[in-house]
Design a binder for these strands. Structure first.
Lengths: 269, 269
DNA sequence: CGTTAATTTGAGTGGGTTCAATTATAGTGG
DNA sequence: CCACTATAATTGAACCCACTCAAATTAACG
């Protein structure tokens, strides 16, 4: 399947042929965009949503003091703000890092898909929950991890997500990021990022290029950063079918659970 | 309306009587919980979701080194992880800070409401998008803001959300947080938090109590922290009705927009 | 009234910052 | 194709903020 968006969703949620067909037609409107272009700007009120089918992009905010804070990296298959129409204004900007293939979807189409296709509903929620989990992991990192582990952890995050999509080989093992980009991601100074990268280079984990980072040994990097990919929710959910496994619960918990279920059923006339 | 969950949603999304009725019965199963109790633990696979109807709670993670990182504060009306069943494991724990009134909802009930009640669908998305925005704002803060402004900004966040719910008066203007709690939130040391709070106290912005902080002048605090409440999405969305305002767009954008809309309609048989 | 947890205070240290200056790389137009 | 320009990367030095360590005081709770 050539459509990375569908591939990403299908890896997590069981999509049937109809689902795939719906998604295919929904993402038919495609455009090629150069690198360094803003797809959406903070404060905008866009009329449609973007999906990165190919290339890298990032979500960022400009701060009052002129600084920039990068909040997320978008890789092939990632949707940007599929439900942003619910908000009055875009809370952040989105910019391409490399040339990208971008699909456009009208917001009403998204709503429609979520309403009529339960699997797509699940997939959209899986997606936003994972976005949130990544943000939480970043927040934990900025507050607590040492700068070298933090940068290493960040690299693990992006490359693990790439791997899960089957994009784990060269030339995709190269991230097109300047050291300033990394600094704006990690909340470090440009100069300190350089020193951190030098250390990771000396450990033979990565290769530092002009406006780019190449990972030589993701496994070692993971160990160094104590990276646990659990938060990315990459394992296929056992519960996707909707059948709850009640048998594993303690008696007390099961009793409460059944009470809640009963309560719920009673309300359905 | 005594149900803070419904009140919170109704402030953002136009709910009709049926919506309110559905939400009321869905949150009928209520329990009183003491302070300092874990509602959910990281790694759990809970069978139902929690909603804080009254009291304060927080979302946190325990780190490998034993440290704790507080990721969010939950105030009356906040749901915890309404869609967590989609994930295999809980990515964080949730703990009450004060005695709380908690409602329980089965996950299938949530899905059902989202499927059959468009307004509730919107409300749930509004909710998660706002959660995400708050996380982003925290991330920006940890990386960039000075410690005193960051703590001030955090206080503005919680108290502004309380105000929006009509809980802006004493005794609710008191947050039951120890200085260690604040430290685990801001990613600062306990001792430095004390110094920051002392400064804010000397400026007459707050009163520092034992295991608690009282805000004396939220307006001054906002100015000090350069707090812009835009990210909380508190203004009623103009677009909630689903009618897109195309007239404000540039010609080029409108053309593309209409193309996308047409594309979308063509796919509906 | 005794114990525990939280807060308050001081002193010293270290890591990440800023400032300043040089080298390398890529892109541009002649 | 090359000189020129702008941006990115590299390196060194000094400073400062927030941390750690250590200890005293206060408040809460049984």
């Amino acid at each position: 399947m050539s459509n990375s968006f569908i591939r990403k969703l299908a890896l997590r949620v069981p999509l049937n042929e109809v689902d795939i067909d719906v998604l295919k037609t929904a993402t038919r409107m495609v455009e090629r965009v150069k690198g360094g272009v803003d797809l959406v700007n903070e404060g905008d009120h866009p009329q449609y949503s973007h999906i990165i089918l190919d290339g890298f992009a990032c979500r960022y905010r400009i701060l009052p003091d002129g600084g920039r804070s990068i909040l997320a990296y978008l890789i092939p298959g990632d949707g940007c703000d599929l439900h942003a129409s619910i908000l009055n204004r875009m809370p952040h900007s989105i910019s391409t890092l490399t040339p990208c293939t971008v699909a456009y979807i009208g917001y009403s189409k998204v709503k429609e898909m979520a309403a009529y296709r339960p699997n797509i509903y699940l997939a959209l929620w899986w997606s936003i929950l994972t976005d949130e989990a990544i943000l939480q992991e970043m927040l934990v990192g900025v507050g607590r991890r040492s700068p070298d582990k933090q940068v290493a952890h960040f690299l693990c995050d992006v490359f693990t997500r790439l791997q899960a999509l089957g994009l784990g080989q060269a030339p995709n093992f190269r991230l097109p990021l300047s050291q300033s980009d990394l600094a704006d991601t990690a909340g470090l100074s440009r100069i300190h990022v350089y020193r951190v990268l030098s250390k990771l280079r000396d450990l033979n984990f990565i290769k530092v290029r002009h406006k780019g980072i190449e990972v030589l040994d993701l496994e070692k990097l993971r160990k160094f950063a104590a990276f646990d990919c659990g938060y990315l929710n990459l394992d296929n959910a056992r519960k996707m079918t909707g059948v709850d496994d009640v048998s594993r619960l303690s008696d007390a918990t099961r009793a409460k659970y059944e009470q809640i279920m009963e309560e719920g059923n009673r309300n359905e006339k």
